[in-house]
């Protein structure tokens, strides 16, 4: 565990270049909309804090585990990846994988910490748009990833496939929510639907392959944990003993 934490800290300090991607920058959203997304995000963050307190009371070593996953989300959502099909860069989110491991409400919590640090130190995202970014990456990404993983498992999908779908669809859900946020705030006198589709289509050449890549990475990491530390997933109640 200590080695993992050390590795994550080193990665955080190495990864100081600001990525350029879905995070909404400072000033893009009008003040009422920025405030609205804060109102949406705050109850989920509070829910995450409550869940962290409850679960770490039961298992005290759960707290460093959540911190470790928070560090992973921070690093993953900072990595600019060039996408040759689009000629531009974007980043994966890591929230699908986090949601599988620690649950969606704690994913919102670790995402809010990661986004706050990125806004403060890396000019990645913004403080006024923090609520909107938490909503798209933490809430939409986390809950979609968690829901898809468990739905796929219920439908009899193998673990790797469920993790792949969770990673891929959580990434796409994040960018769809960003499109929704932009369109709802900035459509003006034009059609909301028209702008939503336009933004989503503009994201597609970059995010379509990147979402698939995120799915592959999520499945790879998940299968690695299954093969090396199956008891970790059982103790986190991700899977039952007979499934691994």
């Amino acid at each position: 565990m200590k080695k993992w934490i050390l590795l994550s800290v080193v990665l955080i300090f190495v990864c100081v270049l600001p990525a350029s991607a879905m995070h909404l920058s400072e000033g893009i959203l009008p003040a009422p909309w920025a405030a609205f997304w804060f109102v949406v995000a705050i109850p989920f963050v509070a829910w995450g804090l409550r869940d962290l307190r409850r679960r770490s009371n039961v298992t005290p070593v759960f707290k460093p585990m959540v911190a470790l996953i928070g560090a992973a989300v921070f690093v993953i959502s900072c990595m600019p990846i060039p996408v040759p099909t689009a000629g531009s860069c974007s980043h994966p989110c890591g929230t699908g994988l986090a949601a599988i491991l620690i649950g969606p409400q704690l994913t919102v919590l670790v995402t809010s910490v990661a986004l706050l640090l990125q806004a403060l130190f890396l000019s990645h995202g913004g403080l006024t748009t923090l609520g909107a970014n938490i909503t798209s990456m933490g809430i939409a990404g986390g809950f979609v990833g968690f829901g898809v993983f468990h739905l796929a498992r219920k439908l009899g999908s193998p673990l790797w496939m469920a993790a792949f779908l969770a990673g891929m669809l959580s990434d796409w859900a994040t960018y769809a929510t960003t499109s929704f946020e932009l369109a709802s705030a900035l459509h003006g006198s034009g059609s909301f639907l028209h702008m939503f589709v336009a933004v989503a289509v503009a994201f597609t050449p970059t995010q379509l392959p990147l979402g698939i890549l995120e799915g592959v990475v999520s499945a790879g990491v998940y299968c690695f944990i299954v093969s090396r530390r199956p008891a970790l997933l059982q103790s986190l109640r991700v899977v039952k003993a007979e499934a691994v």
Partner: peptide, 29 residues
């Protein structure tokens, strides 16, 4: 390719068109 991020090629493009260009970060490091 310029390899600009999608915040520049997508988000900023639409935001500028709507009259809400991004401004400098509140804490500029």
């Amino acid at each position: 390719g310029k390899w600009a991020g999608v915040d520049e090629t997508v988000v900023e493009k639409f935001a500028r068109a709507a009259g809400h260009p991004p401004h400098r970060p509140l804490i500029d490091t």
